[in-house]
Amino acid sequence: MKLTCIECPKGCMLTIEKTDAGVIVEGNDCIRGKRFGEKEATNPTRTIASTVKTVFEKMPVVSVRTSSEIPKGLIFQVMDEINKVVVKEIYPAGTILIPNVLNTGSNIIITTDMTKILK
């Protein structure tokens, strides 16, 4: 398969081939592209970013993201988990809102420092 590497803005066009000897990646400019290509062929992962509702009028939503990559196939299920949460306290950036979301090993963390906005 052919796809663009998303590791950096360079966007190398990768050719990925699954063989008995393993995954062969071509077109990558660096080692991160090779690793990305290998993962795409076996277990593609992504980070996702979204927002979570709060109870604060001045800041109706707060931004969050996954602390590390999650399986691509779980993106919409993780979104469902994120959408279940309502933030009722003022947290700094980096606060874990959902630990180990759907047993992925990744946490949903807050990315906007609420303390700077809601003093």
């Binding site: 663009t4 590497c5 998303i6 590791e7 803005p9 966007g11 992504r46």
Partner: peptide, 10 residues
């Protein structure tokens, strides 16, 4: 950017 075509659309 090409990577955004990939990760946002494809």
């Amino acid at each position: 950017l090409s990577r955004n075509i990939q990760q946002c659309l494809i």
